[in-house]
Amino acid sequence: SEEEIREAFRVFDKDGNGYISAADLRHVMTNLGEKLTDEEVDEMIREADIDGDGQVNYEDFVQMMTA
Rank of each mutant, 00 (worst) to 15 (best):
V56W: 03
V41T: 04
E3L: 08
A67G: 09
I5Q: 01
E43T: 12
V41D: 01
A8V: 04
M64F: 09
K35Q: 09
A8K: 07
D53S: 13
Y58L: 08
I45L: 13
V62A: 03
F9A: 03
V41P: 01
D51H: 13
R6D: 02
F12I: 04
D24L: 05
M44H: 04
E47A: 15
M65Q: 02
E47D: 12
G18A: 01
V56T: 02
V41N: 02
T66M: 14
G33H: 11
L36D: 02
D51Q: 10
I5R: 03
E3H: 13
E59C: 04
G52T: 10
S21K: 06
I50V: 13
K14N: 08
R6S: 02
L25N: 00
G54T: 05
M29R: 01
N31I: 15
M65H: 04
S21P: 08
E39W: 11
V11G: 06
H27K: 13
L25A: 12
F61D: 00
R26D: 01
M44G: 01
E7L: 07
Q55T: 07
E34K: 15
R10D: 04
Y19Q: 08
V28S: 02
F61L: 10
G16A: 05
A67W: 01
L25K: 00
T37H: 05
D49F: 09
V56H: 02
D15L: 10
D49N: 14
T30A: 14
A23V: 12
D49K: 15
T66K: 07
R26A: 05
G54D: 05
L32T: 03
S21Q: 06
N17P: 00
M29V: 09
S1A: 08
L25W: 03
M29A: 04
A48S: 09
L25V: 10
I45W: 06
M65L: 15
D24H: 07
L32Q: 03
K14H: 12
M64Q: 09
D51R: 14
M65F: 06
G52W: 09
E59G: 05
V62S: 02
K35Y: 12
A48H: 11
L36Y: 14
Y58W: 12
G33V: 11
N17L: 07
M64C: 15
R46N: 08
R10G: 06
Y19W: 10
K14W: 09
G52Y: 10
D38V: 11
A23E: 13
M44L: 11
K35I: 11
T30V: 12
D51T: 12
Q55N: 14
Q63L: 09
D24C: 10
E4K: 13
A23D: 14
M65D: 01
F9M: 06
Q63F: 09
A48I: 12
F61S: 00
V62M: 10
K14Y: 14
D53F: 10
S21V: 03
K14V: 10
G52M: 09
S21G: 04
R26Q: 06
Y19D: 01
F61G: 00
E3Y: 08
I50A: 11
G33K: 12
F12D: 00
N57F: 14
D60M: 15
G52L: 10
I50Q: 11
F12S: 02
R26K: 12
Y58A: 02
V56I: 13
R46Y: 07
E7Y: 03
M65K: 03
L32V: 05
D42V: 06
E43N: 14
L32A: 03
Y58D: 00
Y19T: 08
T30Y: 10
E4A: 11
A48L: 15
A23R: 09
N31D: 08
E40D: 09
S1C: 12
D60F: 15
G33A: 10
I20N: 00
E7H: 06
G54Q: 04
L25I: 12
E43H: 15
G16N: 09
A22F: 11
E34S: 15
D13S: 01
I20S: 00
F61E: 00
D15A: 07
E40T: 07
F61N: 00
I5Y: 09
I50Y: 07
E2H: 10
E4R: 13
R10C: 05
D24T: 04
G52F: 10
Y19A: 03
G33Y: 14
H27C: 06
E59R: 05
G52S: 13
A48Q: 07
R10K: 11
N31Y: 14
G54A: 05
D13H: 00
F9L: 11
N57K: 14
V56F: 08
V11F: 09
T37V: 04
E2D: 07
E39Q: 10
V28T: 03
T30R: 15
F61I: 14
D42T: 10
N31Q: 13
D53I: 11
S21H: 06
D49L: 10
M65I: 11
T66C: 08
H27N: 11
A8W: 07
N17Q: 05
D42N: 12
F9Q: 00
K14C: 06
D42H: 06
R46W: 06
D15N: 13
T37R: 06
I45K: 02
G16S: 05
G16F: 05
D24P: 00
E43A: 15
A67C: 10
F12E: 01
V56R: 01
K35M: 13
E4S: 08
I50R: 13
D49P: 06
E40A: 12
R46C: 06
F9C: 11
D13T: 01
D53L: 12
L36P: 04
D24R: 02
E43L: 14
A48K: 08
A67D: 11
E2N: 09
L25S: 02
M64T: 05
E59S: 06
I50D: 04
I20Y: 00
G54K: 04
I45E: 01
M64D: 03
Q55E: 06
M64S: 06
M65S: 02
A67S: 14
A48M: 13
E40H: 07
V41W: 14
T66Q: 09
M65G: 02
A22Y: 10
G16W: 03
L25F: 11
I20Q: 00
D53R: 11
G18P: 00
T30F: 08
N17D: 07
M29H: 01
G18R: 01
E34I: 15
Q55F: 13
F12K: 03
G52R: 12
E40C: 14
G33N: 14
M64W: 09
E40S: 06
E3G: 08
E4C: 13
I45Q: 02
L36H: 08
M65P: 01
E34N: 14
M44S: 02
G18F: 02
I20R: 00
V28I: 09
G16D: 06
G18C: 02
I50H: 11
E59K: 06
I45V: 05
F61T: 01
D15H: 06
Q63C: 08
H27V: 11
F9V: 02
V56C: 03
F61W: 07
A8Q: 09
D51M: 11
E2M: 12
M65N: 02
M29Q: 01
A48W: 12
M64H: 13
I50L: 11
K35S: 09
D13F: 01
D53K: 12
N17R: 08
K14G: 05
E2F: 13
G16I: 02
F12R: 03
G54C: 09
M29E: 00
G18H: 02
